[in-house]
Amino acid sequence: MRLVIAKCSVDYVGRLRAHLPLATRLLLVKADGSVLVHSDGGSYKPLNWMSPPATLRVTDPSEADAADGVSEVWVVQAGKSDDKLVINIHEAIHDTSHELGTDPGLIKDGVEADLQRLLAEQIHRLGEGYTLIRREYATAIGPVDILARDADGRTVAVELKRRGDIDGVEQLTRYLDLLNRDPLLAPVRGVFAAQQIKPQARVLATDRGIDCLTLDYDAMRGVDDIESRLF
């Protein structure tokens, strides 16, 4: 992990265009090739970024840019498209690198772990004819919660959350992109399952062809008295 605090301007060039004027920002360069641009606000979300696979190339500025105070130019090129992130560094205030090692991954809380176990045991909740391949299916970017096959024998990747938001949909999208490169699994479709799914997450999932499934935790545990329900 490389951390650079610099006075810089940033341009995203490609299918979309975006510009960040000159300001002091934090630049994160990760081992997976991603580059993220952060400000001192906005919670955990970067102002702009390039997702992996990507390559970072550092070049000298043009004469015109040098005259404007640019000392070096970072060009972050996407691996799968013509999109690129161009970062004009005016002043590097801090530059350090750290070896973080292999991350053990996210340890799910009790409810998420129970949801995964219960859905694996009750795989029929995904639909008639579904069969379980395995839980915690390992990939290069992390484990898929549940990998299953539908009634037609097609592979299905399931991402489980207590509360489903846009980040969960993005996570499942990355898994699907990777799994669909495996000819033994492809085509792989996705199911985003949670106790509650935010409307924005449902819209994004639907737009990407991902099915949404709302899970009733109490019913899955067998503690829900269906006969006592009013509706």
Results as ranks from 00 to 15, higher is better:
D218N: 15
D167Q: 10
D177K: 09
G110N: 13
G142I: 07
T131E: 15
D145I: 10
V156G: 01
G222S: 04
Q171K: 12
D177L: 11
R117L: 07
M1G: 11
Q122S: 11
I93H: 00
K84C: 02
Q195I: 15
H98Q: 10
G110V: 09
L28S: 12
V75W: 04
E99D: 13
T139M: 06
P53L: 02
L28F: 11
G110D: 10
G41F: 11
F231T: 05
D32T: 06
Q116N: 13
V223Q: 05
A31N: 15
A78Q: 03
K108Y: 13
L147K: 07
E128C: 05
V111A: 06
L115P: 01
T173V: 07
A193V: 10
R208S: 10
V86A: 06
D167K: 13
V203T: 14
L47A: 01
K108Q: 12
Q196W: 13
H98P: 02
D65G: 00
R189H: 15
Q200G: 12
I107D: 01
R202V: 01
I210N: 12
Y130H: 15
R163K: 12
L118Q: 09
R202H: 04
L85F: 06
G190C: 04
D40F: 08
V76G: 01
D182S: 10
D218K: 11
A78I: 07
D152F: 12
D32R: 09
D60P: 01
Y130E: 02
L22C: 03
I123Y: 02
S228P: 04
G190Y: 05
A140P: 07
R189T: 15
V4E: 02
D40N: 11
L85P: 05
G33A: 07
S39A: 13
H94Q: 11
L213N: 07
D182C: 10
Q196T: 15
G33V: 13
D225E: 13
I166M: 14
D165T: 12
V203I: 13
Q122F: 02
S39H: 03
R25N: 03
Y44G: 00
V191L: 13
L185P: 07
N180K: 11
T24V: 03
S9H: 06
D103R: 10
R134C: 13
V70I: 00
D207M: 13
P199Q: 08
V86L: 02
L213T: 11
G33I: 14
Q171F: 08
K80C: 01
T173C: 01
A148T: 04
E99V: 10
E170F: 11
E63R: 09
W49V: 02
S34T: 04
K108R: 12
F192C: 10
I210G: 11
L118W: 14
P187I: 10
G79N: 05
L27F: 09
D32L: 08
L115Y: 00
T102H: 02
Q122D: 06
D109S: 01
V29R: 15
D218G: 12
D103L: 03
P21C: 04
E112V: 12
D207Q: 15
R208G: 00
H124V: 14
M50F: 02
T155N: 13
V10P: 00
E128D: 05
E128Y: 01
